Amino acid sequence: MRGANEGRGLLYRLYISRLRRQLAGATVPHHVAMMIDGNRRWARQLGYASAAQGHRAGAAKMHEFLRWCDDLGIPVVSLYLLSTDNLRKRDSQELADLIEIIAELAEELSHEPGWRVRPVGRTDLLPAELARVLADVDERTRDNTGLHVNLAVGYGGRSEIVDAVRSIIAQHDENGGSLEELAASLTPEQIGEHLYTGGQPDPDLVIRTSGEQRLSDFLLWQSAHSEFYFVEALGPDLREVDFLRAIRDYATRDRRFGG
């Protein structure tokens, strides 16, 4: 049995090397957005008593995923960790566990050499301790110029657009402009500048695990021209080979903006 396992491991490593060779010189995404899904289902299938084990395994996988992205030279990655809907709909114990796990993950990521870790979302909706950890991580990594990691926590795409429009209106009002002038001058680019991710490139590729094929209110504005790739594996079961296949698939697509 040991020999069979070693053989499978060798074949897997050889396939990984083959995929990496295929990607040499290929166009990789500048910004990848990841929707990790299936943590609770993974925990149930393995017989765990609560979803916390699934969320913890999913968080560990996201740390690994970020290293894969960094190794491939992808400069920006956004992770969807906690939505505004999650804050309202998850049972209190699962939500408390998830908040603790996210705080631990943010701390871990902030100690990766050179990584810039930035929370995006409504931190005012979060428990005070998690909001404090995210603020500390943001400040600690502010001057780093390596992999830029967006942690979407307390995030909702519709709310983000509303907040952006409110910000534009407030700024316009401070400058003494009229509503008529604002209506005449408002552009998609202006809204983009006031999003939580303002100043960053939009995601080229959005990946979602567990076979689900929906956006779930994630980067609604920014993903207007994104490519999508759906992986059958549950979040904690995501493999590097799944990731490299997604990048290979992206590299072969003929991107058509607006058509």
Rank of each mutant, 00 (worst) to 15 (best):
W115T: 10
V28K: 15
L215A: 10
R142Q: 09
R116G: 05
D70M: 09
N86V: 05
Y48T: 10
I101M: 03
V153F: 04
V165A: 14
T84Y: 08
E107F: 05
P201T: 02
P75D: 03
D202A: 15
P188S: 00
V162F: 07
H111V: 05
P236S: 07
G177S: 12
W115D: 05
E129W: 05
G235C: 15
F243A: 04
V241P: 08
V133P: 05
L205P: 09
I168M: 05
L125S: 00
A43R: 09
L244C: 08
R253I: 07
R140Y: 05
A43K: 07
Q190V: 12
Y12I: 11
D254A: 11
P201I: 01
E107N: 12
A59G: 06
L205G: 11
G235M: 11
I102P: 08
R118H: 00
A57I: 01
A184S: 11
L134C: 01
I101D: 08
L23S: 03
E129A: 15
T187R: 02
L219A: 03
D204H: 06
E174R: 08
F65G: 07
Q171V: 04
P188R: 04
L220N: 08
L234E: 14
R256K: 13
E160S: 01
R90N: 12
D91R: 07
G9Y: 03
P29E: 08
V149D: 04
A246C: 06
V76E: 10
G146R: 01
R208A: 15
D97T: 13
S110C: 06
A251N: 08
M62T: 01
Q213L: 06
D71H: 12
I161E: 12
L130V: 01
G121D: 10
S110K: 08
W221F: 09
D217Q: 00
E232V: 07
A152Q: 03
I99D: 00
G259R: 03
L147N: 05
L46D: 04
E94C: 02
L105K: 11
R41P: 15
S92G: 08
A164H: 00
D202V: 03
R255M: 02
G192Q: 10
T123Y: 09
M1N: 12
R239Y: 07
A57Q: 10
R2C: 10
E100L: 13
H30N: 13
I99A: 02
R256V: 07
D136H: 09
L244P: 06
L182K: 02
Y15M: 14
R41D: 11
S185A: 14
G156Y: 05
D124L: 05
D237K: 00
Q222V: 04
L46A: 05
G235R: 03
Q213G: 04
I16W: 07
D70R: 12
H194T: 05
M62L: 11
F65C: 06
D136F: 03
E100V: 13
E100I: 11
L238W: 04
A135H: 03
D136P: 08
R122M: 13
D254W: 07
Q93W: 12
R67H: 10
L134K: 08
F228G: 01
H55D: 06
N175D: 14
H30G: 15
